[in-house]
Simulated scan of single mutants.
Amino acid sequence: MQPLDIVTLLVAVAALLLGVVAVLGQFRSSEPTRGDADALPSDVEGLRREVAALQGETADALRHLAVVRYDAFGDVGGHLSWSLAVLDDGGNGVVLTSIHGRSEARTYAKSIADWSCEQQLSPEEDEAISHARPSDRR
């Protein structure tokens, strides 16, 4: 390393340390003290309202995901076939399946509404939906 590189590195490390110290100082100064205890309930209630609003906004987000990998055929190993469930809070979304054979692969998509499908699901697709479903909705 060149002397200039070493100096640059030392300055960068020093700047990083100063930044960390400044952030920690702000964090400590923002912690509530005994005198601020009266203001805490209104802040907590405001945060509760904000969290409830955010939960309402994300209800339609496709955030429940699960993948099941398996061997679709006895002569093809490596768990190259898979089913992926992508669902929102209401169990609406899609299950994607890719079946890998020795010479080809096929991909399927099935719509899911309210945790079920109008088309027949394979055991692996059903398992992916089951794993994607939150435990409080099983």
Rank of each mutant, 00 (worst) to 15 (best):
Ala85Met: 08
Ser103Cys: 00
Val95Gly: 04
Ser98Pro: 00
Ala109Asp: 01
Asp89Asn: 02
Arg102Tyr: 12
Asn92Gly: 14
Val76Met: 08
Gly78Ile: 09
Ala105Lys: 13
Leu87Phe: 04
His79Glu: 15
Val94Met: 03
Gly91Leu: 06
Thr58Glu: 13
Gly74Met: 04
Asp60His: 04
Leu84Arg: 08
Asp60Val: 03
Gly74Ser: 09
Val95Met: 07
Val95Thr: 08
Leu84Cys: 06
Asp71Ser: 15
Leu87Val: 02
Leu96Cys: 06
Leu96Tyr: 13
Arg63Tyr: 00
Ile99Thr: 14
Leu65Phe: 14
Thr107Pro: 00
Ala66Thr: 11
Lys110Ile: 09
Ala59Val: 05
Gly101Trp: 05
Arg102Trp: 12
Asp89Glu: 10
Leu80His: 07
Gly101Phe: 07
Ser103Lys: 01
Gln55Arg: 06
Ala85Pro: 04
Arg102Gln: 15
Ser83Val: 13
Gly93Lys: 01
Asp71Lys: 13
Lys110Gly: 01
Asp60Gly: 05
Thr97Gln: 11
Arg102Lys: 15
His64Gln: 07
Gly101Met: 08
Val76Tyr: 07
Ala66Ser: 15
Leu62Gln: 05
Asp75Gln: 13
Trp82Asn: 12
Tyr70Leu: 12
Ala66Asn: 12
Val94Gln: 05
Ser103Met: 00
Gly56Phe: 00
Val86Arg: 03
Val68Thr: 05
Val68Asp: 02
Leu80Ala: 06
Gly78Asp: 09
Glu57Lys: 04
Asp75His: 13
Gly91Asn: 09
Tyr108Asp: 02
Gly90Ser: 04
Ser103Ile: 00
Ile99Leu: 15
Gly78Tyr: 07
Arg63Cys: 05
Thr97Ser: 12
Arg69Thr: 14
Val68His: 04
Asn92Thr: 15
His79Ala: 13
Arg69Trp: 11
Ile99Asn: 10
Ser83Tyr: 15
Ser98His: 10
Gln55Leu: 06
Ser111Lys: 14
Glu57Asp: 02
Val94Trp: 05
Ala72Gly: 13
Ile99Lys: 09
Val67Gly: 05
Asp88Arg: 01
Trp82Ser: 13
Gly56Lys: 01
Leu80Lys: 04
Arg106His: 04
Glu57Met: 02
Gly74Gln: 06
Tyr70Arg: 08
Leu87Glu: 01
Ala66Met: 11
Gly74Val: 07
Trp82Ile: 08
Gly56Thr: 00
His64Lys: 03
Gln55His: 03
Glu104Ala: 11
Val76Cys: 07
Lys110Pro: 02
His64Met: 01
Glu104Trp: 07
Leu84Ser: 02
Leu84Asn: 06
Ser98Leu: 06
Gln55Asp: 07
Phe73Asp: 12
